[in-house]
Simulated assay, not measured.
Amino acid sequence: MNCHSIRKPRSERLGGFKGDNDAFRIGHLNAELIEGEDNRLKNTRAAVVRGGRVHIGKGCSIGRRNIRRLSAHIP
Rank of each mutant, 00 (worst) to 15 (best):
F17G: 03
G59R: 01
A46G: 05
E12H: 15
L41A: 03
R45Y: 08
K18S: 15
A31E: 02
L33K: 05
N21M: 11
A72C: 08
A72H: 10
R53T: 07
K18Y: 10
V48E: 05
I74T: 10
L29G: 04
A31T: 00
E35N: 12
R7D: 09
L14H: 06
K18F: 15
H73S: 07
M1F: 10
I34V: 05
G36Y: 03
G16N: 11
A46R: 04
R64C: 09
I67P: 00
E32W: 05
I34D: 00
K18G: 15
R25V: 07
R7P: 06
R40Y: 12
V49D: 00
P75I: 04
G52N: 07
I56L: 03
K58H: 14
P9A: 13
I74L: 10
R68W: 06
G15H: 15
V48G: 03
I62M: 01
A72N: 12
I26C: 14
R69V: 12
V48Q: 02
A23K: 15
R65F: 14
N43P: 09
A47I: 06
S61D: 09
L33G: 02
R68Q: 14
L70R: 06
N43W: 10
D38G: 09
R45E: 07
I34W: 01
H28M: 12
R50E: 03
G27W: 02
R65D: 12
R69P: 14
G27H: 01
R64P: 13
R7K: 15
P9E: 08
I62Y: 02
F24S: 06
R69E: 13
L41C: 02
S61V: 13
N30L: 09
R64K: 11
R40Q: 10
G51N: 02
G63D: 04
N30G: 10
S61F: 14
G52R: 08
R64E: 10
V48N: 04
G16H: 04
G19T: 01
L41G: 02
H28R: 06
E37D: 07
P75R: 04
D22Y: 12
A23Q: 12
S11D: 14
L41D: 03
G16P: 04
T44N: 05
I34L: 03
G19D: 05
L29A: 02
H55G: 03
S61P: 14
P9V: 06
E37K: 04
A23F: 12
G27Y: 00
G57K: 00
N21Q: 11
H4S: 14
I34F: 00
K42W: 09
G16W: 04
G57Q: 01
G27R: 01
F24I: 06
K42D: 09
N2M: 11
L29H: 02
G59W: 03
F24H: 05
G63A: 03
I74R: 13
S5D: 11
R13P: 11
I56E: 03
D38Q: 13
E35W: 06
R45T: 11
N66Y: 13
E32R: 09
A47P: 08
K58F: 12
G59V: 01
I74S: 13
R65Q: 15
I74Y: 11
